[in-house]
């Protein structure tokens, strides 16, 4: 019975549950969400590939035509890549709703192109290459 006071108080208070899909808890700054590449800054130095503990980042191809392949399904969101990047081309975004049913949609390729460079998270083009 020692909880009765708090139980009565709780009845008058708003529940602490967040009605998740409708409302979302705020994401604090410097949250480690899905990393995003700014390919205009990237110099293809492969430091991120070496720093990545689970091997979620790979450099495919050679020279300026090379692509960075990012395997989101392997990523552990540790921020090592962002930390090691000499040009600060990788930032940890606040995206955290990354679950899905199709692992082939979790592979992103970033290519260094001079012409059109949309927002960093947007130019993640899904490829069928799993």
């Amino acid at each position: 019975m020692s909880i009765v006071g708090e139980a009565l108080r709780q009845l008058r208070r708003k529940p602490c549950t967040v009605r998740y899909p409708a409302e979302k808890a705020p994401v604090p700054p410097r949250f480690r969400g899905m990393p995003a590449w700014d390919m205009s800054k990237c110099i293809l130095c492969v430091l991120c590939q070496n720093a990545c503990p689970p091997g979620a980042i790979r450099l495919i191809g050679k020279g300026p035509e090379a692509e960075i392949e990012y395997l989101m399904d392997r990523c552990i969101f540790c921020e090592e890549c962002a930390e090691v990047c000499p040009k600060r081309a990788i930032v940890m975004s606040d995206r955290f709703e990354l679950a899905g049913f199709d692992r082939s949609k979790m592979v992103f390729r970033f290519r260094k192109e001079k012409e059109k460079q949309p927002e960093p998270p947007k130019h993640s083009a899904p490829t069928a290459n799993g």
Partner: peptide, 9 residues
């Protein structure tokens, strides 16, 4: 989450 960027990890 604010100190380290992750709630559990």
């Amino acid at each position: 989450q604010e100190l380290t960027g992750g709630r559990v990890l």
